[in-house]
Write a protein that binds this DNA or RNA. Structure first.
Lengths: 189, 189
DNA sequence: ACAATAGTGTATCAGTTAGATATAAGGCAA
DNA sequence: TTGCCTTATATCTAACTGATACACTATTGT
């Protein structure tokens, strides 16, 4: 079976929000979407070229003074249709690499206090994420009042909120478990 | 800065549980660990060779009758020490590609009922996961009574349980939101 | 009896993805 | 005036996935 190339559809999804350059796509991803999707330049530029060749997007060169020209891409009618087709395909279970859990599963081989430190760092990062999401959430209705995508952006945000709260609850539970274990059992050997 | 090669440490982590072959590693990952870590043969076999060359693991050939020989690898003292060093390194925020959310963010461009169908499928998969985790959880104390890694396996399991419950709550919430939206607003155009 | 399917085991390939860097010009700050 | 940030396009290598090849055994179906 043909391989998927999810990057292609991710980039088309970005273009569905409006015409933009490779640079715009990267910036938008980093600023707003990083927590559930990311793409590298190594994917973005070749794929934009490909989309153009396949007639799924159209390129316009915007000249600028003092700055490099912008290659702006706009999703074509065929592009939007292809995106819609892809939208209907069933989603497979996400494959993940959760490093914090991997570092935990050989916990009997490493120093107890190192494990606790790792979980504490994880919890702190998730706490920051919660603050971040909560800030966006509070300003949401004002910022996106006129945006037809607002309800869908809200759903994406909620995904982050639910997961982050789950991670925080897990961190607290796990720290409690680690602190209740006799340290001797967790020592190197 | 040098790239990470997380696969290398993941494979060492597997070997920390006991000597095993590439085939064993793959099977163990698929049966027990898939939901938070995975490796392909394309990584496993070359890395096992590399670990041997670097003195981090030792290879023993086990002859078998009627079956292919097994190349069994055992983590060396240096290997365990390298693994411990890696364990102490801080974990970066996980990079993810959550396809279901990507398919939702251009929701205003696609048919409403397709979105609902996607979320329902997602919810059903997570429901299955919850049943799976719950089964393991219930038989846990009996199965791993003598295992010194039991508490750490329990923590990994809890991670899955927390996330899965969060996903289910989000699915229900999102379905409710989608069903409350006027279908006309979600139509193609 | 014979075919199809599944298991054990090692190994590699092509396509996909991540992360870093090259290039080049302008602005801005120490 | 050196150094860093921003805008913008582009490419390269290393890492990684998913599929497949090979070879032999074991089980199940008809």
């Amino acid at each position: 079976m043909a391989r998927e190339n999810k990057s292609k559809y991710a980039i088309m999804a970005m273009l569905s929000m409006g015409p933009m350059s490779g640079y715009d796509i990267k910036k938008l991803l980093e600023e707003r979407v990083t927590h559930f999707w990311n793409e590298s330049y190594g994917q973005i530029y070749p794929i934009l070229k490909l989309l153009q060749q396949e007639g799924l997007a159209e390129k316009t060169v915007e000249r600028q003074e003092g700055k490099p020209d912008r290659n702006v891409f706009e999703l074509s009618a065929e592009g939007l249709e292809a995106l819609r087709q892809w939208q209907r395909l069933p989603v497979a279970k996400e494959k993940r690499r959760i490093e914090i859990v991997l570092k935990l599963v050989f916990g009997s081989k490493v120093a107890h206090e190192d494990l606790i430190l790792q979980i504490e760092r994880f919890r702190d990062m998730e706490q920051e994420m919660l603050v971040f999401y909560t800030c966006i959430s509070e300003g949401f209705d004002l910022e996106f009042a006129a945006d037809p995508d607002a309800p869908f952006k809200r759903m994406a945000l909620n995904f982050g909120l639910h997961e982050t709260r789950a991670h925080l609850a897990w961190s607290d539970e796990t720290l409690k478990m680690l602190r209740n274990m006799e340290p001797s059992k967790g020592q190197q050997g």
